[in-house]
Structures are given as C-alpha cells and as structure tokens.
Nucleic acid binder design. Structure first.
Lengths: 164, 164
DNA sequence: TTAAACTTTCAATTATTTTTGAAAATAAAA
DNA sequence: TTTTATTTTCAAAAATAATTGAAAGTTTAA
C-alpha cells in the first residue's frame, strides 16, 4: 500500500502523540495505519507500508490487541490473520485511559500509601502534609478516570456542557 | 542532606511519575526534593543529595523555573541562588497541564487542521471522517484543559461534585 | 581592573529504549 | 506423518535520550 502525503502526515502525527502518551511510536503508527485503512490489513502489508521489521510489527500488534485497540479479523479460507482498529475515538480514549490508569496512576497511589505507613515519615509533619496533599489529588484524578472509563459518550458531553 | 528511606521513596515515585508525564526523571526528582525541603536549597546541595552532576542540576533547575514550578530565592548577603518549589498541588497541576497543552496538544491540533486542507485528503471520505473525529475530540480536550488552567481550586471541586 | 564565586553550555560518554532479523514455535494443509 | 505458512521470541545491533564534567561565561566583590 502506498501512502499519500496526508496519510503519512496522519501516521506521523499519531506516532508523535503516542510517544507522549506512553505508547511507543511504532505501536501508535500501526494503530494510525489501521485507523485509516478501509479494510483489514495483514502483518505483511503493515510491515511493508510502514517499513518496519516483522518482529516489531508482531510485538506491537500484540500490544494493540492487549490494549483492546485492535481486533483480529479472520477471513474464511485464508490462513493468516488480518487486523482492524476500533474506529470510535470515544472508545479509543477510554481504552487508553484505562491502561494509563492501571500502569501509571495506580502504582503511584500505592507507593504514596506505602510511604505514609513509614514511622519516620509520620513524625515529619511537613513531609506528611506534602505526601497527603498529593495522594488526595491523585485519588481524585483516579476517581475521575474510573468514571470516565466506565462512562458512555453522553456522560462526557454532559460533563463538557457543565464545564465549558 | 541525608535522605531518609521515606524521602527517597517519595523522590523515586515522583521521578517515575514525571517520566510518564513528559518531565524527565531528574527534573522530577529535583522537583520532589524541593517539594519536601523545609528550606530553600542551593545547587550544591541538590547535586550532592541526588548524586547528579552540576550540569544536569543546572539545566533541570532552569527547566523547572521555566515551567513555573520552582522559584529562585535570594538570601541577602549570599551570592549563590537558592531554590524553592511551589507547594500547592493544585497550582502544580495547573502549571504542568499548561505545559503539556502547549507542547503536545496544540501541535497535534495544528497538524490535524493542516492535514484537512490537503485536497487529496478531502476526496477521501473515510479518512476525513477519522481525522475530523479525532480533531473534534482533541479540540474538546483542549477546551477542558484551557478551563482547568485558568480555573481556581473551587472550580475543580465543584466539577468533581458534579461528576462523581 | 583582577580575582573569586557561581552558573551555563555542550561535546563526549553512558544508559536506556527500540528495532531488527534469524531461529524457534505454532498451526494448518498435504 | 511431513511440509508449508504464519507468528512469536529474543539476543544483538541501532537509535535515542540522559548525563557528565570541564571549559567558557557571568556576576559580584575586592
């Protein structure tokens, strides 16, 4: 598959954004390619289009499937696997939020709670205050994300109306 | 300055979190150290406490000041500069959101708009739909961040009440 | 002025992350 | 079975990012 200029820009943009969001560049680019592909693609085609190795392609497709952003698509009579991306940006955002919450926020919350159990820390008033402030803040962000992840699109738009 | 176990954990945790948030590890660790330091610290003390080089320390303090997370603190009669971190987690969150919006979201919005002007793209119905969906979503996130950045703490708590 | 105190810069080094590609594993077909 | 098609793994290589530290730059004091 030849990529037009605008398709390339899109893949590049999505790749850069991914880099900022804990998704590696190749993973984001494969995702971008599948997002704009009208039909399911196989590994071979993804490799060739993005000019990346077989191993890299395989690993990152796997990751996309783990995150729930991409699904396998089997074509009867064909042996190899094809892949399709979920197209709804709302669904995509929720899936990404879910992973980031799990991989980043939860461990930090755990670590902060752990720190607060240290007797040394407890005797340091200022320090405890700082840790507690941050913990409470992180807890709130966690709650918002939880809500967001479990929500439907309507909730999001209602929220926007209230906010903006 | 000797760091207690809990202080070390805190600095480590904050450093890890920073890594996920576009802030480099050292920058986040210096920030963490200043967050829990009862008094302003000078470059020498930061270097020694975190066991990092002078150059690294200088560059990252500079970055923290650019982001608005840290302020210089001059002591009369002393020649060297001391540094203090803003302690209010609410203020910190807004300052970080401001940078991330500028460095990450805005360029993506720009790129998406650019892509939409390409005649090639405009004739590709599916592609335009995808790009437009993402653009509209990003626009909404941008608006929320703008609101958040300009808001006060009350706004945030009111929002939380509405949401959760 | 000059010297001392302190800060910044940046080329070179070191550490970390990503990618490759060939071999091993798996699965379907003959 | 055995062969062929396809996917996965992972050690080594390449690419990228972070860090050092010594030299250059600044600023203040003498």
């Amino acid at each position: 598959m030849e990529l037009s200029q605008s398709h390339q820009s899109f893949i590049h943009t999505w790749g850069t954004l991914g880099g900022n969001w804990g998704i590696n560049k190749t993973m984001a680019q494969i995702h971008a390619l599948l997002l704009i592909a009208p039909d399911p693609l196989d590994t071979e085609e993804i490799m060739k289009t993005l000019v990346i190795s077989r191993g890299n392609t395989s690993m990152n497709i796997r990751a996309l499937i783990d995150w729930g952003l991409v699904n396998k698509h089997l074509i009867t009579g064909e042996r190899k696997e094809y892949f399709v991306a979920k197209k709804d940006i709302w669904v995509i955002a929720r899936l990404i939020a879910k992973q980031r919450r799990k991989l980043e926020l939860e461990p930090v919350l755990g670590a902060l709670k752990e720190i607060k159990t240290d007797p040394d820390a407890q005797s340091d008033k200022e320090f405890m205050e700082r840790v507690t402030d941050i913990e409470e803040f992180a807890e709130k962000i966690d709650k918002i994300m939880e809500k967001f992840i479990a929500s439907d699109e309507q909730w999001f738009y209602k929220m926007l109306l209230k906010l903006v």
